[in-house]
């Protein structure tokens, strides 16, 4: 790196590397897109105007909100919450908790969602028409001491009425999701340096609080990206709700509407377009979540910075 004084090199004006294959790829893609667009326009069976019409039908929109969106949100809330609990159980010192979490994950990962939903919708109702919540063996106990057998029952659920609602779908999808989320959360928790737990312990923080305040927020950085994928997958899996059967759901409604007009394809296109819209919105949300939980690890978000500067300025 010797520099000759008096004749020092000036600014760099170099030719960039050429990328001929990029241009070839662009040409190929352009041709393919042109063919596709031309087929959309010339093949009338696509019938996009009708697809757009289907998208705006009240039952379809209702199916979108009450089935697809509510189902996704509900089952992900259940799945993430239960998944984190399972992950903490999996990593605890208590062998019973560890075992329970392991068996849960094993079972719910093995069973296909479609089958699980069918079981919840049809199978459980066949076995038990009512599910009572109360003292264990409360009925037998009450019978034995000769009082009304429902004395120790606090709450009774009519399964057959319950199993046709979206809540049954949320239960099924959420229980299944929890098994996957448990693995994701476990990986996230393990990704946090042990020194973090020790620093919190050394400050006198009890284990539960250490987990909630120190470990989990940092684990979120690892947990959020795959959870975004899981959420997007869940949007699509709500189309399985028909196994329960729940018909107030996007795909069934759109398909059904198309079928009635003897135009099946526009119905499918309408559903596809809605799924694309929902997933695009979710991807934007995922970006912001990742940024929030990545704070302190990379660039600091502007807004947080401003707020914190304000706090600092108070003193």
């Amino acid at each position: 790196m010797s520099t000759v004084s008096g004749d020092r090199p000036g600014p760099i004006k170099a030719r960039p590397v050429r990328h001929p294959w990029r241009w070839v790829a662009i040409a190929v893609i352009a041709v393919l897109v042109a063919m596709m667009v031309s087929s959309f326009v010339t093949n009338e069976k696509w019938d996009f105007p009708f697809a757009f019409e289907i998208m705006q039908q009240t039952p379809v929109i209702q199916g979108l909100w009450a089935g697809t969106v509510l189902g996704t949100v509900g089952s992900m809330v259940l799945g993430v919450g239960l998944g984190i609990v399972l992950a903490v159980m999996r990593l605890s010192d208590n062998p019973v908790l560890r075992g329970v979490a392991f068996v849960y994950t094993w079972f719910f990962r093995a069973i296909p969602r479609y089958v699980l939903l069918a079981l919840i919708g049809v199978g459980v109702g066949f076995l038990y028409s009512q599910i009572s919540f109360g003292l264990p063996f409360g009925e037998q106990l009450a019978g034995a001491i000769g009082i009304d057998t429902t004395t120790f029952t606090f709450f009774t659920l009519d399964w057959n009425a319950f199993s046709s609602t979206i809540w049954a779908g949320i239960l099924g999808l959420g229980l299944s999701e929890a098994a996957y989320m448990a693995e994701i959360a476990r990986a996230g928790i393990l990704s946090v340096d042990r020194g973090q737990t020790e620093a919190a312990q050394a400050l006198g923080m009890p284990p539960g609080r250490t987990m909630r305040r120190i470990v989990l927020p940092q684990a979120m950085r690892v947990i959020v990206p795959p959870t975004g994928n899981e959420t997007i997958a869940m949007v699509k899996d709500t189309s399985l709700l028909i196994a329960i059967p729940i018909i107030n759901e996007l795909f069934f409604q759109a398909y059904n509407f198309g079928q009635r007009g003897f135009k099946i394809l526009p119905g499918m296109v309408a559903a596809t377009l809605w799924y694309l819209v929902v997933c695009s919105i979710l991807m934007v949300g995922q970006y912001y979540l990742e940024r929030y939980f990545g704070r302190g690890f990379g660039a600091v978000p502007k807004k947080a910075k401003q707020e914190l500067t304000k706090i600092g300025a108070d003193h």
């Binding site: 340096d193 973090q196 620093a199 312990q201 400050l203 006198g204 923080m205 302190g296 690890f297």
Partner: peptide, 22 residues
Amino acid sequence: IAAQRRDIGMCFQRFNLFPHKT
């Protein structure tokens, strides 16, 4: 045990600050 540790401060070789907090 956590309560016993409150009165004992510790500094680590690798600092172990909480990176997600200011």
